[in-house]
Design a binder for these strands. Structure first.
Lengths: 137, 137
DNA sequence: ACCCTAATTAATAGTTATTATCTAATAACA
DNA sequence: TGTTATTAGATAATAACTATTAATTAGGGT
């Protein structure tokens, strides 16, 4: 389902800026920061504002089609949500990658037993050293 | 093993400020921010500086006896490390709690198979609505 | 116990990510 | 096409954190 449909369903306007930001996130699997999204888009939309990027990212988060990643450092990164997946972060170079590894349903079930929350989401981050940095040393 | 021993082993000085900050983290299971640690300690150490809190937290992170949590929002929270455990965050009130739920060794093993990283750490966050907020509605 | 020195604190200024505000532009609908 | 509420863009403001620097202090040597 396209972003335009989702936006209209929420009563939000479909603007080129929003589509462009979402497109960057889809075509770019490197989990960009708000600022790198801004830089990428500035080439085509010289009038794009960083504030717009932030506002749009918030909106897309609310719609549930992207997620914000908090992996340490003081900068958030963003990610389209095809299906829930863990992330690996290289503690040397800071790169962050999707992991093709299913988040077992049983993990949420165990969590539900371990506390009294209505759990609706989870984030799993692994920290380590990537193959490139391993060899670089 | 006490903090003083750890610090001396690292060739760092044992100062009342450092001990105080660590003590707050130990006696307080609410995962404080740097600023709330500062506020708590200010009562006893009126001369304490926020910068000192940040530097000490960084140092304690390096020693490996505390960890920094990135749960969204733009503020880091801190936590002593008794043994690795997941966290639950209430998406209504922002409270964050430790979960008494083992992080199975197999999770890391699966991760090691799924990518080529030397994985040395992981963070697992669950997001949901806490019992109190459930009832409040 | 006292001194010396390097490490650390405290105060403050600076930086950076993010948010708020406000005016101009524009998507959606009649 | 015209109207209107929403959104974009520019910029100022905020908040978390970091760098700097002078003053203080822990810890080893005497």
């Amino acid at each position: 389902m396209g972003l335009d449909v989702v936006l209209r369903e929420m009563g939000c306007k479909v603007t080129p800026q929003r589509l462009a930001i979402y497109e960057v996130l889809q075509n770019c699997n490197m989990h960009p920061t708000a600022e790198s999204i801004y830089n990428i888009i500035s080439a085509d939309y010289p009038t794009m504002s960083l504030a717009t990027v932030y506002k749009t990212l918030d909106l897309l988060k609310e719609t549930g089609i992207i997620q914000e990643l908090n992996i340490g450092g003081n900068t958030s990164r963003y990610d389209v949500i095809p299906k829930p997946h863990p992330h690996v972060i290289c503690t040397k170079c800071g790169k962050i990658e999707n992991m093709d590894m299913p988040l077992s349903k049983s993990l949420i079930n165990k969590a539900k037993k371990a506390c009294d929350y209505d759990i609706h989401n989870l984030q799993l981050y692994f920290y380590g050293v990537c193959p490139y940095c391993k060899n670089a040393k």
